[in-house]
Design a protein around this nucleic acid. Structure first.
Lengths: 354, 354
DNA sequence: TTTGTCGATGTAAAGGTTTTCATTGACTAT
DNA sequence: ATAGTCAATGAAAACCTTTACATCGACAAA
């Protein structure tokens, strides 16, 4: 069940009439071999269809060209675009990406570390927000394998981080709502996710404070980042009957839930309530009304992260241990100026946007 | 820039007081080594934290435990769930998955084949619908590496296939529309994708024929599978003024476009037009009205495909060269009985469904 | 001529496994 | 007692590279 035996460096050397050392050099350090010889070697390589055996190479060099990506949920639509960036950059530099779906399961995480410890993979991209189990208890002294955290930072300062500036993004979002005349702005948060949600909430608070608006604790609710929790949070507000004029949600999924709740109660959006999300997930533009949100440069995040990791892997000097990218305000139709009533709202619903 | 030297099999052998051969056997064929010895070896392994070096192992065995997945667009939301299935099954069997984003670029495809030819990867999952460039011109005689096509079959019968039964799925979809009283059912197809769209169109035709409904060529339009093309196709129908009562779309993205067009024209869905998609992409349930569609068992597809591939890779006998899974009819709110008018449609819009 | 330098190449070790084949010793059947 | 079988183990080859070190020859300087 295997292909015909592949040509080895020895076959090439035989045909070219040189030693295997020369072949290896002709490939990796062409300058060190005479022109004529190099030509003979190249011919031989072409004739045999030789490819260097990566296993042998990695074994000898004690380093593979493979990067392991650990993500809690590979099916998450947020993940796939980051993956594109990671893959693109890795491939460009001759590395392959190995993906590990951990489902936040400690066993699976430990399990995947074998790729690192067996030197099958050289570096690690973490989308988990924590050190993988099995490294977690390692003393602060132990040397960690090269790794970079993406999206969610790893507590402590041992792991370089690439992600979006959540504080700034949320502040911009909240400022946008305020600029549209809203002063009673609710925030639907995400208690289970540590850092990200917290930073976004802080951004929200900062914007309000800067605008001289007092924070109303009744307008701050926690969800768990899902659409359903967004729906519930909105319902909760109606039950308590403390209402905002705009909802800023910790992410688009939550915002979607809020919109569903508002729609179900028969409100006309965005005329009666404005809603903002964060992330710009793929269907943010397809819901009705289409969702105004902060766009994460996902592909870019992936590229930057892989860049940083490869620098560490290859021992190049790395300038900064933390890269914060800016998120972009995407204006769609779920936010309206407070009190404004622009004639025929239904006609504007499907107006296209970036 | 590397971890402290890892324990080798020799270290273990030394501590356990046996030869390296015995250690290897204790690990892979425990039955072949005496109980007492095995215990000593296991202790030594535990003490040293030994992990077998995958590079050395693969080199010796001439076979790695890595599967290469070639996909034209890793960012495609359809892909991510298949990936989950592929990864889960692979990981369960001790294999790793390597992902390659080809963007339908011949160079990138060829490039990725180096993982196969350098024996860094043992098998190939193709989501491309064709043999990767570089194998494409290989004569029918050349032995191909172990591979399985997913979602879209590879022309010819050289590559085993795992996917959904598109013909049957589309037939069920069309039958559903017919069962709701629709007799003028449009089909918005997808000319650029060969097999998949064609099979779905055939299923549509079969259902109509079986119901004794003549096929009206004016009701069959081609798109390119995108939301925008769905919108255009629907517009096109209004321009020609040959209207169906229901739209069956080759996929959900197209269906979404159709719904956008109909909404923009001010029609009330599903009262005035019914729309069906195919795939059940993640936001099918979030649009208004939520989309009735055929659900692809994506994760299951991934698992089956990986299963089949690993069988081939490991030389186990493989029963069938083609696995067709059934898609499932998901009833939501974009289809209504023809002529029916059920009181308060807005209230039912957000009724949950499977 | 002698010595030294330098560029081009070859030899051989090392990297860590798995596996074939040989060896050993215990035990069984004759 | 002898031959034969069998289970447990070890020695060494093979997998395919990269690279430190050695060699060789040409040429320059003395």
């Amino acid at each position: 069940m295997q292909l015909q035996r592949l040509a080895t460096i020895e076959d090439v050397a035989g045909i070219a009439g040189v030693s295997i050392a020369t072949v290896s050099r002709a490939i990796h350090e062409p300058a060190k071999v005479a022109d004529a010889t190099r030509r003979r070697v190249n011919d031989a390589i072409a004739r045999t269809g030789y490819t260097t055996n990566a296993m042998a190479r990695s074994l000898r060099m004690r380093r593979s060209n493979m990067i392991l990506i650990l993500a809690p949920d590979v099916g998450d639509p947020n993940f796939s675009n980051i993956l594109v960036g990671l893959e693109t950059e890795a491939s460009k530099r001759g590395y392959g990406v190995l993906i590990g779906n951990t489902q936040n399961d400690a066993t699976r995480e430990t399990d995947y570390l074998r790729f690192i410890s067996s030197s099958q993979a050289t570096g690690l991209i973490l989308l988990t927000g924590h050190l993988p189990f099995g490294l977690e208890q390692s003393s602060p002294l132990t040397r960690l394998p090269p790794m970079v955290a993406v999206n969610e930072p790893v507590p402590g300062d041992r792991v370089p981080f690439v992600g979006v500036d959540n504080f700034e993004g949320a502040r911009i979002a909240a400022e946008h709502l305020i600029s549209q005349g809203h002063r009673r702005v609710a925030f639907i948060g995400h208690s289970t996710s540590r850092m990200v949600a917290e930073l976004r909430e802080r951004g929200y608070r900062a914007a309000l404070s800067d605008a001289g608006i007092a924070i109303d604790p009744m307008l701050i609710l926690d969800g768990d980042g899902t659409t359903e929790s967004g729906r519930q949070a909105a319902e909760h507000m109606f039950v308590r009957d403390v209402l905002p004029t705009a909802f800023l949600c910790v992410n688009d999924a939550t915002a979607l839930g809020v919109m569903i709740a508002l729609n179900a109660r028969g409100y006309d959006l965005p005329r009666q309530f404005s809603v903002m999300g964060f992330d710009d997930i793929s269907y943010a533009s397809f819901v009705t009304p289409s969702l105004t949100t902060m766009k994460q440069p996902r592909s870019k995040i992936g590229e930057e992260a892989m860049n940083l990791l490869l620098a560490v892997v290859e021992g190049r000097p790395v300038e900064q241990k933390q890269v914060l990218l800016r998120s972009e305000l995407i204006l769609r139709n779920s936010v309206a100026r407070l009190g404004a009533d622009d004639g025929d709202p239904s006609a504007s619903r499907y107006r296209r946007s970036g």
